[in-house]
Design a protein around this nucleic acid. Structure first.
Lengths: 191, 191
DNA sequence: GGACGACATATCAATCTCCACATGTGGTTA
DNA sequence: TAACCACATGTGGAGATTGATATGTCGTCC
């Protein structure tokens, strides 16, 4: 479906073009290497969703979206089957974080925050980039998706920083209590 | 890894227990049915990450985390290999949204917003629920992950509503322009 | 004219994942 | 005591995914 979408957005293209386009546009939402793209294009050709034409040099094949393909894409876009797999390593780690001690967890979160901050920067750059650098923008694309990505990364960064601060505060409090307890014990021992 | 984490968090458990726990806890971050869990437990037993003991009735097998298992889990939690698969159907749809006309896209977004709002409600309920209803809370778990989930769903809901409103505004503007153009044409025709 | 990098397509094996099918036991309740 | 539900564990096959490997061409720069 992602391939159909790109074909619709850009017009006829080769598998190679699509692979590059994938990288430079929806790679944040969906990943696919050329070893997935080529067989998929062959399958879609069989299904009549696209047509092929061998035209360019180096055995280049240009694929074009058919009416049936656009219909299928449209149907998928509008359809609302509940999302099948929402799966995120980051979320899993976040969930299991309390297994580590507070200091360690906080350190991990701070590194995570840096990572999100970096992604945030690169997305914000994209927002100010023009069509040359960001081909999908020419088609008015990714406008809303880009804003979403920016907001999400900002949220993630702030969440990581806040959680880290919270964990550190708790750790400090605990150490204080322990220290007080030890002081008391020492005082008792000294009696 | 998710399994190891749950084992660490809850202590010894059977595959059945883990499957249920999965559903009631990290299901939002990671999904796994029993048909994945049982083979995975067998594999981890071979690798020495857990030990099995057939004890309960009905062929129940209880799995216990070994030191090696905890070490592996710890290593995974602390380690920071860049996230491998971030893949989201919703994000993909969001990206391809401009392929639809504005009204249709807005309608889709409003339905999407409803969905996020519902998830938001259920997560907020979870926040106020006590350990009885939400077993992982007993272990102090999911505290930060839960807050993250709430923030994310709120963000998603607001993004969908804002984007829908924006699309509708643009569609209305366009229609106005078109109508004005037609008026002018009619006036010319009437001359 | 040779080297090199970008263009361009393809296949294979290993692994992961999903869904459906399959099988059986223990406790409770009508 | 029969029925039923929760408990409990598996297998098998289709399809997706990843990463490695393979092969060859075109244009350009030195």
């Amino acid at each position: 479906m992602a391939l159909l979408g790109l074909l619709k957005a850009t017009g006829p293209a080769s598998g190679y073009d699509l692979a590059k386009l994938f990288d430079s546009s929806i790679n944040n939402a969906w990943k696919a290497g050329h070893s997935q793209i080529y067989p998929e294009l062959a399958r879609m050709t069989e299904d009549g969703l696209v047509t092929v034409e061998a035209d360019g040099p180096r055995g280049r094949k240009t694929y074009t979206l058919t009416d049936a393909g656009w219909e299928a894409l449209r149907h998928w876009l509008v359809g609302r089957e509940p999302e099948r797999h929402w799966r995120s390593e980051a979320a899993l780690r976040a969930f299991l974080l309390p297994l580590l001690d507070a200091r360690e967890a906080a350190a991990w979160l701070r590194r995570e925050a840096e990572y999100y901050a970096e992604r945030l920067r690169s997305l914000e750059e994209l927002r100010h980039a023009d069509g040359e650098e960001y081909p999908m923008k020419r088609a008015g694309f990714g406008r809303y998706a880009l804003e979403l990505g920016i907001s999400q990364n900002r949220l993630l960064r702030d969440w990581a920083l806040d959680s880290a601060a919270d964990l550190e505060r708790r750790a400090a409090e605990e150490e204080n209590e322990t220290a007080t307890g030890e002081d008391a014990a020492e005082r008792r021992a000294g009696d």
